[in-house]
């Protein structure tokens, strides 16, 4: 069963993630040179980029799990979806937060209406709405079903949001400063690779733990309900 597999291997993912992130931090903070153009500020990239890619992966997991749930109605898959949405809030908020800190010295603004920023904000809003929706439904099966529907509709919406905002900006005023498309030297690539792998391992670990927690909580509730039922009858 899937839950056994999670219980058995999640610790390894956590430990490996810690090792990779530690190596990545050493390379990123100490061993790599400051950028010739951006200086020391560039080091925030080593957390920002992994945050951004893991948060998109989170939404991917959420979408696939939601489709799978509507198809097979497996409660554990719903727990997986629920877990990845919760963890997704953390990573998306992290991406926006670190991006904002990076934006201040390089773009000279905390915030701009760039397509990526807007679509990440919408992503965060959808994830928070998803978690809120789940708290407002008593029936467990209906909660899972409605949440899955929201996740799927959101998944269809996000690319459209991205393209429409991109279009909106290019038709209006081109971004004054754009750092995209800079080539990365090898020395700077290593910490990025280590951090990315570390973040993905951490993500797997966190989703594993959270899925297990949600699963056990439901198991506990079901058992308690059965016990109470026996007492009352």
């Amino acid at each position: 069963m899937m839950i056994r597999w999670i219980r058995r291997f999640e610790g390894w993912f956590g430990a490996a993630g810690a090792v990779f992130i530690a190596i990545g931090l050493y390379y990123g903070l100490a061993a790599s040179p400051p950028d010739s153009y951006q200086g020391e500020v560039v080091r925030i990239m080593y957390v920002h980029v992994p945050f951004a890619s893991t948060s998109m992966t989170c939404y991917g997991v959420l979408t696939v799990a939601s489709l799978w749930y509507l198809w097979k109605r497996d409660p554990l898959v719903d727990n997986l979806a629920h877990a990845s949405a919760g963890i997704g809030v953390f990573f998306t908020a992290g991406a926006l937060y670190t991006g904002s800190i990076w934006g201040k010295p390089t773009w000279n603004t905390w915030w701009t209406w760039d397509a990526r920023l807007v679509s990440f904000t919408i992503l965060l809003l959808i994830l928070i709405g998803y978690l809120m929706l789940r708290t407002f439904i008593e029936d467990r099966e209906r909660e899972a079903r409605y949440a899955a529907i929201l996740a799927i509709v959101g998944a269809v919406d996000l690319p459209i949001v991205h393209f429409s905002v991109e279009w909106w900006r290019t038709l209006h005023q081109p971004l004054s400063v754009s750092q995209r498309g800079i080539a990365i030297a090898g020395v700077m690539l290593y910490p990025l690779i280590f951090m990315s792998i570390g973040f993905y391992l951490l993500l797997t670990y966190m989703i594993g733990v959270r899925t297990q927690m949600l699963y056990l909580k439901q198991l506990l509730e079901a058992k308690r309900g059965r016990l109470l039922g026996e007492v009352h009858s």
């Binding site: 919408i122 959808i126 709405g129 809120m132 929706l133 439904i137 459209i160 905002v165």
Partner: peptide
């Protein structure tokens, strides 16, 4: 669901940005 008056705009508005 509960709190339906709040949840409708919270879910709908981010999605209709385009």
């Amino acid at each position: 669901i509960r709190a339906r008056e709040v949840m409708l705009p919270i879910l709908l508005l981010p999605l209709i940005v385009p």
